[in-house]
Computed example of a mutant assay.
Amino acid sequence: MQLSLVLGLVALILAVAALLVVLEDRRAAKRAAQRRRARLASLGEVDPLAPSRLRVDR
C-alpha cells in the first residue's frame, strides 16, 4: 500500500513538473515574439511572418 502511495505521489510530481515546463516554454516563446516585434518596430520593419497569421473573413 505504501509503495502505491509513493508511486502515485512521484507520478503526480512528474505531471506537475511537466505542466510547469510546458507553460514556461509557452511564456518564453511569447516573450521572444514580443521582443522580436519590438525590435522590428524600432527598426521600422514589418514582421515578415505577419501575413501568414492573417485570416481572410469570407
Rank of each mutant, 00 (worst) to 15 (best):
34 Q>E: 13
45 E>I: 04
26 R>T: 04
31 R>C: 05
53 R>V: 02
35 R>Q: 07
31 R>A: 15
19 L>Y: 07
46 V>M: 03
13 I>S: 02
40 L>K: 00
57 D>Q: 15
19 L>G: 02
42 S>P: 06
32 A>K: 14
24 E>H: 05
37 R>C: 05
38 A>E: 13
8 G>I: 07
27 R>H: 06
48 P>H: 11
51 P>Y: 13
23 L>V: 12
2 Q>P: 08
37 R>Q: 07
4 S>C: 03
21 V>L: 15
51 P>W: 09
36 R>Q: 14
11 A>I: 02
13 I>F: 08
31 R>H: 09
1 M>Q: 07
20 L>W: 13
33 A>V: 00
34 Q>V: 05
10 V>R: 04
21 V>C: 00
34 Q>G: 06
27 R>S: 08
24 E>A: 15
52 S>W: 14
3 L>P: 00
49 L>W: 01
22 V>A: 05
41 A>T: 04
47 D>I: 11
56 V>C: 06
53 R>E: 14
25 D>C: 01
27 R>P: 00
47 D>E: 15
33 A>M: 11
7 L>M: 10
18 A>Q: 09
34 Q>D: 12
6 V>P: 01
23 L>E: 15
56 V>Q: 14
48 P>T: 07
29 A>S: 10
57 D>H: 15
41 A>F: 06
42 S>R: 11
6 V>G: 03
39 R>W: 13
4 S>M: 08
47 D>Q: 14
41 A>S: 03
8 G>W: 08
2 Q>I: 11
55 R>G: 03
15 A>M: 08
54 L>T: 02
29 A>P: 00
16 V>M: 03
12 L>C: 01
9 L>E: 15
30 K>F: 05
2 Q>G: 14
36 R>Y: 14
15 A>S: 08
33 A>L: 12
8 G>P: 08
42 S>H: 09
25 D>I: 01
23 L>H: 10
58 R>F: 14
34 Q>W: 02
13 I>T: 06
3 L>F: 12
10 V>G: 01
11 A>E: 13
23 L>P: 00
21 V>R: 02
47 D>R: 09
56 V>E: 14
39 R>M: 14
40 L>R: 00
10 V>Y: 03
57 D>T: 03
6 V>R: 02
26 R>A: 12
18 A>S: 09
39 R>H: 15
38 A>M: 13
42 S>K: 05
24 E>Y: 11
1 M>A: 08
44 G>K: 09
41 A>D: 06
34 Q>R: 06
44 G>S: 10
29 A>M: 09
15 A>E: 04
9 L>W: 09
21 V>A: 15
16 V>T: 00
9 L>H: 04
4 S>D: 13
47 D>L: 10
27 R>F: 03
51 P>N: 08
58 R>H: 12
49 L>I: 05
53 R>A: 15
43 L>W: 06
7 L>C: 14
2 Q>L: 15
30 K>L: 07
28 A>I: 10
31 R>S: 02
21 V>G: 03
38 A>S: 10
29 A>E: 05
24 E>K: 11
